[in-house]
Nucleic acid binder design. Structure first.
Lengths: 158, 158
DNA sequence: TATGAAACACACTGAGT
DNA sequence: ACTCAGTGTGTTTCATA
């Protein structure tokens, strides 16, 4: 059993709905209905089910960090000291600069993404984690692929 | 000049609007208007301006990779061979599995995030990049901080 | 810029197929 | 599971301040 797709996504009409919604997440239900050639209540029901079942996790307003005065993005990898693992998780969850934190395999146990007002705010971030482990920091210079979504079943590479 | 905030965000009413919108990006304009104590057309105009000026980049439907049959998330760091830098960018942009790719400082030049149907699809991904450089792969085991947004000026750590 | 009123479009419900 | 039709709400434009 290689492919474990959500049952709702075996219906191509749901996939088509998601494709439209990815293109424009604020498209109205009636507009979606028109483009799909079905009635609005139908679209409404399918959408509701996709959300209930967790295929659509949530809708997000993507703000520009630079406009918010946070032009510097960094990745920090952290190798915890013995017994400090949960401290790092706590800290990452507490700091608003941290927008993502993942537990990963490999020599480092965590990787996190953070947004800063300037490079001179980096030490402030790092210092807090240094209490619990070693850190390796990478500053983002540019983003050739910029947080595009997960691919839909249709055009997916096998 | 440390803080370089977007001019629109010096108006606290815009910040309040964004805060509501972050809480629920599909909140209707009239609902926003009610909660802010202004008229609907006003909210509509402010929202339009925030989008025009790029403070709000876009609205995103966040799909669950697992539901799409892509339960494995990996980070791959790549250290390019001489002259292969642009090849790596091209490849990252071409592969639908790759949802993010950043140029970074440090020993590796790139870090990318990818979503896979299974661990047995990892070699397929890595092999393509190995043509242009060395790779270091980390598999995501869990996500203590799960892609929350960038913090607004209000509650921000200085 | 903000507003109120009016025209229009949309969301949602319930009954019927 | 879809559609149709009805009701109430939301959106959008415009004239005005």
């Amino acid at each position: 059993m290689r492919i474990m797709l959500h049952p709702l996504l075996t219906d191509p009409r749901n996939v088509a709905l998601l494709k439209l919604l990815l293109g424009n997440p604020r498209m109205s239900i009636s507009e979606l209905a028109r483009q799909l050639g079905v009635s609005a209540p139908t679209v409404r029901e399918r959408l509701a089910r996709l959300q209930e079942r967790g295929v659509i996790r949530r809708f997000v307003a993507d703000l520009d960090p630079q406009a918010l005065g946070l032009p510097v993005t960094v990745f920090v990898r952290i190798r915890p000291m013995a017994g400090k693992l949960s401290k790092i998780i706590e800290l990452a969850q507490t700091l608003p600069q941290v927008s993502e934190c993942h537990r990963i395999t490999g020599e480092d146990c965590f990787i996190l993404k953070a947004h800063l007002a300037g490079l001179d705010r980096l030490d402030e971030l790092i210092d807090q984690f240094l209490a619990y482990g070693q850190t390796t920091t990478s500053i983002v210079q540019s983003s050739p692929v910029h947080a595009r979504g997960v691919p839909l079943p249709q055009g997916r590479v096998r």
